[in-house]
Amino acid sequence: MAKRLMKFLGMSFLVVLFYVPGNAAAGGLFGPPQSLSREKGGLNTTVGFDYHEDKFESDGTCVFRQNRVYSQVAYGGARHLWEVYGRIGIADLEIEDGFRSRINTTTSSPNDFEENETPFGALGAKVFFPLGGAFGIGAFLQGSFFFGDFGDEVRGHWNGAPYKAELNVRDLWEITSGISVSATVPRGIILYAGPFIHYSEARVTSSRHISGIPLLEEDATVKNKTEIGGYGGISVPLGRGFHLNAEGRYSERFSVGVAVTYTYQNRGL
């Protein structure tokens, strides 16, 4: 029975991973594999903060840093077996050394690209298969899309002449999928960990093309450098229906997030 279950799980995961269309992303924590809704199924809502870092590459590499704050509504099925959720939030973006010149004839100020408060949304789903009383295995698929453009200005000198250029990061989206095993330890604390794959890309356009600054040299599409990573976290019941969730992820760079979830006992209206 367990073997068939694992086979079904594996097949389902592959189907989800490769054949389900849509934009999914690491727009926040992945969370434990099981739903935090009540046993009979129902709503839960989450407020979360996520510090996310990733390496992107086009003509060279650069580090994207984001602080993301989001609110999530989720509906979980009975016995925590499945959950669908949606998130909305805001995020900033910093590209470390995004404007730094690689040649002496070009100077720039500032060196980092920075933009604040761009809205994003995310959709996701997870399935969970209990393995005995305390353990379980689950899979998730999550996608995010940033609705606004990130933009910043840079000034400097290029071959002795002053210049001003505006860089825009458009259509940033992500899709992430992963599996994890979980263990429920005393006091209802859930520990979970597993691998994930992640793909993210954005379009970078510049109002003026400047030699020596990779992101300004030409319009391009940047993609995340490493697509595989691992994550792990803990979910702690706080009482009165609240859960605290802390999670760390590593994929070339380290990311971390915390979230507080409230589990509705009724309809929520």
Partner: peptide, 20 residues
């Protein structure tokens, strides 16, 4: 605070009598 944060901007009511 509760309804704004965990009630998705106030659309849900986790502070209601049946909840908190």
């Amino acid at each position: 605070v509760v309804n704004t944060l965990w009630g998705v901007g106030g659309f849900l009511d986790p502070s209601s009598k049946n909840e908190l």
